[in-house]
């Protein structure tokens, strides 16, 4: 029997539909789990936390949601080795829950996605992210080729990784830095980073490699028509680059 994946809807989540559709399209047995159904969450084999503004992003993005009853099941599941895939607001929740980088106790985050630099404002911009770890290091990226370049849309107000120098060092040396922002040709520099994120970080994983938290949205560059460089006559409904990460996630479930 295939793995059952729960796509969590917290009050304020807003990206559940496109996330669910892409999961279905890559063959994942996924369903939306609404906050009123939190009690059913332990029955799922993996969790996807989509984008949005869970609990209105009060205090700090993801901070309240990390203490939501739904997140209890996510934390428990992650500790048992279930896959947890957080996207944008979902990534913020995963960090606030302390699952990633996972170098401290649960719900005592050692790193957070914070207000964008330089002006603290929301930014919507097309980006690329490059795989910065050995693919096998994280179960969710395991099926990707080395150095994979994935197109995505950054759409967030709080995506700047911030942590103490010691914790940043730990993230870098511990293999937690899963994806970094990059240019379309794969090169990496400050201009490729849309939000001032420390280490140019776009995504982090935990020590065990079963949790991935990614800020930009690969699911919004999933189809030919989503990609900014479109030309008439190309198959707009064919998969685009963002699908690769979801396909890798699907393979990890098998």
């Amino acid at each position: 029997m295939s793995a059952k994946v729960g796509v969590l809807i917290y009050p304020g989540t807003n990206s559940e539909d496109e996330t669910l559709k892409l999961l279905h399209d890559v063959g994942v047995d996924a369903r939306l789990v609404h906050w009123s159904e939190a009690a059913t969450l332990p029955n799922y084999d993996a969790y996807v936390l989509p984008g949005g503004f869970a609990h209105e992003d009060r205090i700090r993005a993801g901070a309240i949601a990390a203490h939501d009853r739904m997140t209890d099941s996510v934390i428990e599941g992650a500790q048992k080795g279930k896959l947890v895939f957080g996207l944008c607001n979902g990534a913020q929740i995963v960090l606030e829950a302390g699952l990633v980088p996972g170098t401290g106790p649960v719900r005592r985050p050692t790193a957070a996605f914070t207000r964008n630099s330089p002006n603290g404002k929301f930014i919507c911009r097309h980006v690329h992210v490059r795989l910065a770890i050995d693919p096998q290091r994280c179960a969710i990226t395991a099926a990707l080729p080395k150095d994979s370049l994935i197109p995505a849309w950054a759409a967030h107000g709080e995506g700047r990784l911030a942590a103490t120098d010691a914790h940043l060092k730990e993230i870098a040396s511990g293999g937690h830095l899963a994806f970094v922002y990059a240019h379309a040709d794969g090169s990496v520099d400050d201009r490729a980073v849309p939000n001032g994120s420390a280490l140019g970080a776009a995504a982090l994983t935990n020590r065990e490699g079963n949790v991935l938290a990614i800020m930009p949205h690969p699911e919004r560059d999933a189809w030919g028509f989503n990609h900014p460089d479109r030309a008439r006559g190309t198959d707009m409904l064919a998969p685009s680059g963002g699908v690769a990460l979801f396909e890798s996630f699907a393979k990890a479930l098998k």
């Binding site: 990206s15 539909d17 496109e18 559709k21 919507c124 759409a155 999933a222």
Partner: peptide, 10 residues
Amino acid sequence: YKQYDGVVRG
């Protein structure tokens, strides 16, 4: 307009 989410809903 880059402050507006132009791509939510995918």
